[in-house]
Amino acid sequence: MKYEYWLSCIRPLAGKKKELLRSSVGSARDVYYIEEKKLREMAFLTEKDRETIRNFQKKGDLETEYDRLLERGIRLVACHDPAYPRRLKRSAGYPYALFVKGRLPDDDRLSVAIVGARQCSAYGERQALRFAEYLAGRGVQIISGMARGIDGAAGRGAINGGGDTYAVLGSGVDVCYPAQNRGLYADITNRGGILSEQLPGTAPRKEHFPARNRIISGLADAVLVMEARERSGSLITADMALEQGRDVYALPGPVDSTLSKGCNRLIRQGAGILLGPEELLEEMVSEPALAALLPGEREGQRECEKSDKNKKVLESAENIVYSCLGLYPRDTSSLLEETGLSPAALMETLVALQIRGYIKEISKGYYIRTS
């Protein structure tokens, strides 16, 4: 595998040429030790390509470099590896290899990508959280870019729903971007995986993101655009999804909202309309697959019933605070305003609810229900 890592690191060489080169000589190891005569026989290589390969053959201690990669919990999955995602392999322009922290999406489970504006509205963020939480709770894998706004809300919603979520980065998998999502980055690593075609240690760069978007759509069965301006990366992802034969859905919004102009245009062009996660799931899956998901749905109903019973046995102050919380994080400032409690009474109530397991603090001063 160290030779696959070496071949993957030859960045100036296109992925298709790497595949051709590897198949022509037999293995990545054979490419590493290829002789000059054999190299010149490869007609698809330019002289610049040959010079690039020669320079990489002279690079330092490959064994040590690859071992350091493994020590950081990063593995490489090349496109000819059986573990390489089948959906992505069937897409045009798939990367030669993926670097992975955590797991890869399961090929035999439904996957949905949720994308949208970084500077999103409260409405868009709330819907991203809602769709991701519902779908993930019923076994659907959620794919996103872990960016600020919609992508981050989708990842958090999937985790709140107890499901699996995967983030595709425009940086190396060991570079958390944006830095403010470090907690989410750790949670996604544990509950799914972080993926990138960029080399570990690579900083995020503007030109990496369109390429990143094709992987997001390539890993999904459908792409949901929650909010997008008329010109945005989300619309690029939607275009790529259509080229890859994926279904595209968009969240309708106010006609005078700049954040909804892109989504409304997609709907006008024929994208599916997102009216609710329940309708989406029914539309996406076949009847047998839907039947297989029904036990999970009944489990979700039992959890809601349990939540209602929990609410009835709470003390009055606890009941008030609990009623203000849901799966969308609320901060102490908004809870103080809504409940009318004093700061001391609110904190005492929050601590009591946490001890009893009804709520949890997901980040400093932000709380959600546990069910």
Rank of each mutant, 00 (worst) to 15 (best):
M1K: 06
K2H: 10
G15V: 07
K17P: 00
E19P: 03
S23R: 15
G26T: 07
Y32A: 09
Y33H: 12
Y33T: 12
Y33K: 07
E35W: 08
E36G: 08
K37C: 00
K37Y: 00
A43I: 14
T46P: 13
E47T: 13
E51W: 09
I53D: 04
I53N: 09
N55E: 15
K58H: 07
K59Y: 10
E63Y: 10
E65W: 01
D67L: 11
L69F: 00
G73Y: 13
R75V: 10
R75I: 10
L76G: 06
V77E: 08
R90E: 10
G93W: 13
K101S: 12
L104E: 02
P105I: 00
D106N: 14
A113I: 03
I114V: 15
G124V: 15
Q127P: 11
L129D: 07
G139R: 10
I142L: 05
S144K: 00
I150T: 14
I150N: 06
A153I: 04
G162E: 04
G163N: 10
G170S: 11
V173T: 07
P178G: 11
R182V: 06
Y185G: 02
D187G: 06
T189P: 02
I194S: 03
L195G: 03
P200D: 08
H208I: 09
P210F: 13
L219H: 02
V223D: 01
V223Q: 06
I236F: 13
A238Q: 00
V248W: 04
A250H: 06
L251E: 08
P252G: 01
G253H: 02
P254Y: 09
P254C: 10
S260R: 08
L266W: 01
I273M: 10
I273C: 08
L281R: 04
V285Q: 09
E287N: 01
E299H: 12
S307L: 07
S307E: 14
A317S: 15
N319S: 12
I320C: 07
G326E: 11
Y328P: 00
L336N: 11
L336K: 09
S342L: 03
T349W: 01
T349L: 02
V351A: 12
V351R: 11
L353H: 08
Q354I: 13
K364E: 08
Y367S: 05
I368L: 01
R369P: 14
